[in-house]
Write a protein that binds this DNA or RNA. Structure first.
Lengths: 205, 205
DNA sequence: CATACTAGCTAACGCTCATAAGTTTGCCGT
DNA sequence: ACGGCAAACTTATGAGCGTTAGCTAGTATG
């Protein structure tokens, strides 16, 4: 049946190599699709064309996969936020830039976004608290931009917290519907959402 | 130890009755907290102070619990939408009313909202397709209101679909952070979000 | 007072899960 | 040519899952 003998010990030769990164990538796809608890390790193995125990040559546990995915994603979010607002002074410019990168990320990294939003709570302590804190930090930073805009009069919104939640979460939801082959590019969607954000805070130049 | 003999056969007398509804309520709490796949039937039983198999006197399967929760919630969403827009003509009034009830629901029915958003995909076909369709119907109806507002000139937004997604999903996210004992009531939050919605579509009276 | 129903219980089943242990195989550097 | 390592394999383990079966004790009905 099989064109080459694919069973038995020894490294694979005819197949794309299984590596720590390829395991993570397969987990990324499956966790995003069926959730962490809804995904069996055996399904990750099957996606890579390998028996289940072979995975443990490239990972230490299922939980660690989830933690790595969440940690990396939150690290990236923070780095992008910092890079986006650096060098900008006006709150409107900062908010536009921050929402743009955040919204774009949720179009370009859908799987990561879905997992972080759906399955972070499946992490064991103390990782859970650490990750929650990192998420809060990002929200707080966004809120601070809005607060500064309210103070200097360029924004006009009752409560900075409510607005920052609304803005961030509407961006998050892009991951739910965006399609790479859809009618709009990630950049276009990001620009549009950055505009939405400025309207929510009632930006007036 | 136990003040009354609580073991052995026979119905409980000293405890609040276990009913189909109380099972659903316990499932609601646990599914919302840990997710459908993350919740064991034994945990639902424990929450009710009962052994696991006893639950099956009040339900037929774990999956049916999820399906009931999702179906009821989506039914309610539709009914509320219809009731909210009925009798209103202006797109702005309709959008405000529709967002108000949708946002309020996500504050007052947090558990249902979290489950629908997180675990609908765990439903087996054909229920999954049915529920997805019902969700799409609600989005389409909201989009139609926005489109009418664009046509009659009271709204000014590039794409009705993008706007309706953003508005609905920012409302959904209320379920993530709202606390009943927080600084704002559900009504206040709903009013604020209805305002956000009108800003997103650039409503000008 | 007998009967039937309700709603608990214990026990057990068949599965699947994540993970461990130990074995086999092919390639690479010497 | 060969020894060792990397990475696959098979097999196994113990725990937990959802669910069924069969039993028992109170409660309501006649």
């Amino acid at each position: 049946m099989a064109p080459t003998d694919v069973r038995g010990g020894g490294p694979r030769t005819q197949r794309t190599a299984v590596t720590a990164e390829s395991v993570l990538d397969a987990a990324l796809t499956l966790f995003a699709e069926r959730g962490y608890h809804g995904t069996a390790v055996s399904q990750i193995a099957a996606a890579l064309g390998v028996r289940t125990p072979s995975l443990y040559n490239h990972m230490t546990s299922k939980q660690e996969l989830l933690e790595t995915i969440v940690r990396r994603t939150l690290d990236d979010v923070h780095a992008e936020f910092d890079a986006a607002v650096a060098g900008l002074d006006a709150p409107a410019d900062q908010l536009r830039a921050a929402v743009r990168v955040y919204a774009r990320r949720h179009a370009t990294h859908r799987r990561q976004a879905l997992i972080v939003n759906r399955d972070t709570t499946s992490l064991p302590e103390p990782a859970l608290s650490r990750m929650r804190q990192r998420r809060r930090d990002h929200e707080t930073a966004t809120r601070a931009v809005i607060s500064r805009g309210i103070e200097d009069g360029s924004f006009s919104v009752g409560n900075a917290g409510l607005a920052s939640f609304a803005i961030l979460e509407m961006s998050v939801s892009i991951a739910r519907w965006f399609r790479e082959d859809g009618p709009r590019t990630a950049e276009q969607v990001a620009d549009e959402y950055a505009e939405f954000a400025l309207r929510v805070v009632r930006y007036r130049p």
